[in-house]
Amino acid sequence: MSERMRRIDLMRRLTGMLHDEAVVGGIGNTNFDLFAAGHRPQNFYMLGSMGLAFPIALGVALAQPERRVIGIEGDGSLLMNLGCLATIGTVAPANLTLIVMDNASYQITGGQPSASAAGADFVAIARGAGIARSEWSRDPDDFARLVEGALQSIGPSLIGARIDEAPAAGQPARDPAQIRDRFMQAMGTRKEFGTG
């Protein structure tokens, strides 16, 4: 078993390693800390549609096969939509990396234990769904090593991180049209207003 890490520490490690990769952050604390680690225009922050961070990331990955795409999801969110792992295992995009921030609880709704607390193992589930390159990270250095390896590998990958329930260190503004517009500008699929 890996030690419990701190979500904001991992988000800072991740953000510090990134260049032009697209990152889709799942609802709640996951995208709060993604934002708090340092906003990048290539970050997409969800405000609802629980469980769709990985499918959204898959869509971006299919549309832009030359760009590396990262989806980050919490354990409760992923449990709502485990089927997407089978879809990603089947489609097998070369450029998609999935990160699960697993604190074994529904932190944002009061800390109710998730199935992860009883032993549901997302790395084992992902491997079983056809994502062979799936690993638990042991500590922040190991997490960074796995991210680096995933971003250089061909094929989908999943990195699990067992985290604690520290509150998020910040939150993005809840403006979906602005989030989407800025993200698309960063993806090169939408021009800034007034520039043609």
Partner: peptide, 21 residues
């Protein structure tokens, strides 16, 4: 792409749109 469920499919379509497809 065959999705396992409709909201998953919607997420894929939304991501693809933002990526230009």
């Amino acid at each position: 792409v065959c999705a396992t469920r409709e909201e998953e499919a919607l997420g894929i379509c939304a991501g693809a749109w933002m990526g230009g497809m």
